[in-house]
Computed example of a mutant assay.
Amino acid sequence: MQNTISWVLGILFLLEACTRMAPEVEPPTDNTDCVPQFPDQKVTYQNYVKNIVALHCTRTCHKGGNSLGTGNFTTYAGLKHFATDRFYFRVIQNNADMPQGKAPLPKSIRDSLNVWLKNCAPEN
């Protein structure tokens, strides 16, 4: 009887804990508080990132509509929404898992993307 009560209480506790999880919050889309960390390096969406993303991200996955990847990276506005710490972990770090099913991008490309991200992801 005591085991049954313990099991029931344990299950109720787990169910209650699962319903009180923190809601997912969209990352902020404006970066008005961002201070460029590499102001002397001019890596922008228009002069660099757009071509890298077109070559490695939007051909098969992140092109919007019914594509395989989340998000539409074919425009600055579409990519900017994802230019967060998650972009760093998924694309830039040494253990990056994007592009999916392929090796991480070359280190020189990831370094340049990191400069873009750390400089507040400028468009121009």
Rank of each mutant, 00 (worst) to 15 (best):
D40H: 07
K50M: 09
K42G: 02
Q37C: 03
T44A: 05
H56S: 05
K50F: 01
Y45W: 15
Y48R: 09
K50C: 08
K63C: 13
V35L: 13
C34E: 02
P39D: 11
K42R: 07
K50V: 10
T32L: 12
I52R: 05
V43T: 15
D33K: 08
H56P: 00
Y48A: 01
V53E: 03
Y45A: 07
V49E: 01
K50R: 10
T58K: 07
N51G: 11
K50Q: 12
K50W: 00
T44D: 06
V49D: 01
T58I: 01
V35Q: 11
N51E: 14
T58S: 14
Q37D: 08
P36L: 06
F38E: 12
F38C: 07
H56Q: 03
V49M: 06
V43R: 01
K42C: 09
T60I: 06
Q41C: 03
K42W: 03
C61L: 09
G64D: 09
Y48C: 02
Y45C: 00
T32H: 09
C34S: 00
P39G: 11
N47F: 00
P36A: 03
K50Y: 00
H56C: 00
D40P: 00
K50S: 05
C34K: 02
Y48N: 09
T44Q: 07
V35N: 09
P39C: 11
C57K: 02
N51S: 13
N47K: 09
V43G: 08
N51L: 03
C34H: 02
V49I: 13
D40V: 14
V49F: 02
H62A: 04
H56E: 10
D33F: 07
T44E: 11
V35I: 15
Q41K: 14
Q37I: 01
A54W: 02
